[in-house]
Structures are given as C-alpha cells and as structure tokens.
C-alpha cells in the first residue's frame, strides 16, 4: 500500500442548524498532489474548506491530517500542523499593510525579522505586483492584488497543505490567468494544494485529481483530464455539449 494520504476526510457532515451543508463527504489529498473540487453555488465547497481549517465543526465523520485525527482540533492549531488557507473572498486585513498581512501569515512560526524578510521576499518573487505595494494598506489593493496577497499570506505559514477557496472569484479573465499561472508555479515547486473552484475548466487543467461536489455530496471523482472529458461535467460545468 502507498503511503498514507496527507489529508483524509471520511464521511464528513456539517450542519448549519437544520440545514445539512455536507452530507457525508469522503476525499483525500496526497503529498505533492493538486486536487480540485468543483461544483456550483451552494454545493458546499466553502463549507468543506472551513471544516478542514476548523472554522466549522463537523457533526459527523473524521478529518485526518498526516495520520492524526484533527476533527475536533482548534482552528489555530491546525495552522501550526501545516494547514493554511486562502479563504473565499480573500479576507485580507484591509487596515494593515501588505507586508504586515504577510507577517501575520507567519504568525505561528515566530520568525526573526531577518527570516521574515527572506520569506516575504520569496512571496514578492512569486507575485511581483505585491512588492510595489508592500507599504500600502491591503484594503486599497485591487481585487486581483488582494487575491495574490491572500495566497501569499497563506504561503507564509509554510504549509504542508495549501487550501485555495475560489481564488478566481470576481476577477477579470486576465487576472484569473495570472492567478492560475501562480498555482502552476506552486505545483511545480511541489506544494500540495486543495483547490476549490467554479472556473472548472482551468481548475481541472491544473489538477492531478478532481472531485465534483453537488448539494453536499461527491458525485464524481477522477483525474483532472478524465473529468474534463466526462460528458456530464462538460455539460454542467464547462458549458460544452
């Protein structure tokens, strides 16, 4: 048997009051993989990401990270274990500078200023636009720049698993291309990524494996290219018949 998956979710259920947002999800992500989760609005994609980061409690099922059961572990402790997330809608700290946002990303690492500077420069190399704006308040950035900042901030945690929740949401096509170029660059570096997207075509193109999520259930799974060829996926998510 191959080595255990980095992230293993088994029978996960999450409820908002009476509403069951996730109805028994099982999926896994292996070290070095890019796995994508596609699905329409309200399918439960963001809920799943929140559950993995500990922002939503699981009502049933387990989440294991690197073999350890983290289902009930507090959210901030999961970051220390190596799970970082760029959340839906960016959620950068608008009142703090670009640099301070990045510094907060490395909060749990307690770095010296020299080490912080080195890691911040590494993010600026990935996203040169951010370097020009390092002293600017994050709230004054464009949507695309905020998205880059949100990803860079998550990378500052030096994650073993990077969660990207809808990084293309609300962005112009040209910017979306830039974001996906960055995701491919991260993949080439060997970063393990779980990517949630509505832009199914580009997400499937970058993914090693993919899952389709519909109203709280996984309905299809396969490699990225398999799902791209799947007629149901083409009709429902790629706009092709």
């Amino acid at each position: 048997m191959a080595e255990a998956p980095l992230l293993a979710i088994d029978g996960l259920e999450v409820r908002y009051g009476a509403v069951e947002a996730l109805k028994g999800i099982s999926l896994e992500v292996r070290t070095g993989e890019v796995v994508t989760l596609i699905g329409g609005n309200g399918a439960g994609k963001s809920t799943l990401m929140k559950a993995v980061s500990g922002l939503e409690p699981a009502s049933r099922g387990t989440i294991r990270f690197d073999g350890q059961d983290i289902t009930t572990l507090a959210g901030h402790r999961r970051v220390a274990l190596g799970i970082a997330q760029s959340p839906e809608g960016r959620q950068v700290f608008a009142d703090q500078s670009v640099r301070d946002n990045l510094v907060l990303g490395a909060y749990h690492r307690r770095l010296s200023t020299a080490d912080l500077d080195r890691d911040v420069d590494r993010q600026f190399a990935l996203f040169p636009k951010l370097a020009e704006r390092r002293a600017q308040m994050a709230g004054t950035l464009s949507g695309g720049e905020q998205q880059m900042l949100a990803i860079a901030r998550a990378l500052m945690a030096q994650p073993r698993l990077l969660l990207l929740d809808e990084p293309s949401l609300g962005l112009a096509p040209l910017i979306v291309r830039e974001i996906f170029a960055a995701i491919r660059a991260l993949k080439a570096q060997g970063v393990t990524i779980l990517l949630v997207e509505q832009m199914a075509n580009q997400a499937l193109a970058v993914a090693d494996r993919a899952y389709v999520l519909e109203t709280g259930r996984i309905t299809l799974a396969g490699t990225g290219s398999e799902l791209r060829r799947n007629p149901e996926v083409r009709a429902a998510y790629l706009g092709k018949v």
């Binding site: 901030h76 970082a84 700290f93 907060l104 909060y107 749990h108 901030r153 945690a157």
Partner: peptide, 10 residues
C-alpha cells in the same frame, strides 16, 4: 477585523 481570517493565521 476578521476573526475567521485571524484563526487561519494560526
């Protein structure tokens, strides 16, 4: 500013 985002920072 944002409790959830702060949690995501650890």
């Amino acid at each position: 500013e944002n409790r959830n985002a702060a949690t995501l920072m650890g």
